[in-house]
Design a binder for these strands. Structure first.
Length: 152
DNA sequence: GCCAACGTTGGC
DNA sequence: GCCAACGTTGGC
């Protein structure tokens, strides 16, 4: 079992949006970065738990927990000219981009803000706290998971 | 809105 | 294959 953190801009797709999806489940489309793509395609496994992070908002922070319910498969929105995430180089033979499905497990009653995360001993090496980190999918260690989930 | 970080593109 | 230009991310 592995742990992860995914970012979303709440104006684009928030944890409340996820809460209102059928079965509280969505496909996690639109990742257009190779490193994150590889994580989605190769590493995220069914049953893995994932922190849901709101980025580019005030304040940013972790707002809940989701679970991987479907492992990596082609992100077909890349082949849809009407999609915001359209990529003309993606084809059914070579889909280029991948996604997983996630289901909401827990919506924190209170966000754990980035400010708070920065102050907690043991989280210093979290990817999300590194300056300039822009990856939308990052690994979380078991120790980090334990600390953060105990705060919720 | 600013700007640092950093991934991607494309000319050479 | 180098690297400058450019675009995007995301905290502040």
């Amino acid at each position: 079992m592995n742990y992860w953190l995914i970012k979303s801009e709440p104006l684009a797709f928030s944890i409340d949006d996820l809460n209102h999806q059928p079965k509280k489940t969505t496909y996690w489309d639109g990742v257009r970065n190779y490193q994150a793509r590889n994580t989605l395609r190769d590493e995220m496994k069914k049953g893995d738990l994932v922190f849901f992070y709101h980025s580019n908002c005030t304040p940013p922070g972790i707002v809940g927990i989701v679970e991987v319910v479907k492992e990596g498969y082609p992100d077909y929105t890349a082949q849809d000219p009407n999609s915001d995430h359209y990529d003309p180089t993606a084809t059914s033979d070579n889909p280029r981009w991948y996604m997983v499905d996630v289901q909401l497990k827990q919506r924190f009653s209170q966000m754990i803000s980035l400010d708070e995360l920065k102050q907690i001993p043991g989280l210093e090496s979290m990817k999300i706290l590194q300056r300039g980190n822009r990856l939308s999918v990052t690994p979380v260690t078991a120790a980090e998971w334990k600390i953060i989930s105990a705060m919720a």
